[in-house]
C-alpha cells in the first residue's frame, strides 16, 4: 500500500511529493496532516481556549499550508515552519476578532446562577477564567515570545533542543525562556489588574 510507504518518508520528502504531484494526489499532504494535526490544534487551543475555535482555526491553517506548500524552501524544518504559521495565524485571527464586538462563548455565570454554591462549578469557572486570561495574554505577546512559551512550557522541550531548533546557544535559549515567562506574567497580571 502506498499509504504505508508515505509514513516512512521524511517531512521534507513528503513536501517535495506534494509539490511534484500537486492537485493530482493529496495523500502526501494527508500524511503531513496526520503528523502535525495535534501540534497545530494544541497551538490553536492555547490561543483560544475554546475547542470549536481551535478546530476551525486548525482547518483554516492546514488549508493555508496546503496552498502555500510551494513557498516552503526547507530553510527551517517543516515542523518549525508549520508551528510558526500556526502562531502567526492564531495571533492575527484573534487580534482581528478582538477588534470586532465581543461575544462570550462560555457562559459559566449563568450556569452558576442556576446551580448556586456548586464547588466544582466554581472551581471550573475560575480555572476557565484563568485560561481565558492566559490565552488573551499569549495573543498579546510578540510571536517569538509566544513561540518560546509554546516550546518550553506547553511542549516541555529541553533547553538543548530549543536551542538547536532556534539555532541559538543553550544559554541564550535559557535566558529567552525566562524572559518570555516574565513577559507572559506581566501581560497576564496586566489583564487581571485592568479587569
Amino acid at each position: 500500500m502506498s499509504q504505508l510507504g508515505l509514513s516512512d518518508l521524511s517531512d521534507t520528502q513528503l513536501v517535495r511529493l506534494c509539490q511534484d504531484r500537486g492537485a493530482k494526489d493529496e495523500r502526501p499532504f494527508q500524511e503531513l496532516f496526520h503528523r502535525y494535526q495535534t501540534l497545530v490544534w494544541r497551538v490553536c487551543f492555547s490561543f483560544t481556549n475554546n475547542p470549536q475555535d481551535a478546530e476551525d482555526l486548525t482547518q483554516e491553517l492546514f488549508f493555508k499550508v496546503y496552498r502555500s506548500l510551494h513557498t516552503f524552501e526547507g530553510r527551517s524544518s517543516f515542523k518549525t515552519w508549520i508551528y510558526r504559521i500556526a502562531i502567526n495565524t492564531c495571533q492575527n485571527e484573534i487580534r482581528k476578532r478582538n477588534s470586532r464586538p465581543q461575544q462570550s462563548d462560555y457562559d459559566f455565570n449563568t450556569l452558576a446562577e442556576v446551580l448556586p454554591g456548586t464547588a466544582t462549578l466554581e472551581t471550573e469557572w475560575q480555572q476557565n477564567q484563568q485560561r481565558q486570561q492566559l490565552a488573551a495574554a499569549l495573543v498579546s505577546l510578540p510571536a517569538e515570545v509566544a513561540e518560546m512559551l509554546y516550546l518550553k512550557d506547553i511542549e516541555q522541550r529541553p533547553y538543548l533542543e530549543i536551542a538547536a531548533m532556534l539555532e541559538i546557544s543553550v544559554s541564550a535559549a535559557k535566558m529567552r525562556a525566562q524572559r518570555a515567562r516574565l513577559a507572559l506574567r506581566a501581560a497576564y497580571d496586566h489583564r487581571e489588574g485592568g479587569g
Partner: peptide, 9 residues
C-alpha cells in the same frame, strides 16, 4: 500560569 500552560489539552 505555568500550570495552565502545562494543562493544554
Amino acid at each position: 500560569i505555568g500550570e495552565a500552560l502545562l494543562d493544554n489539552p
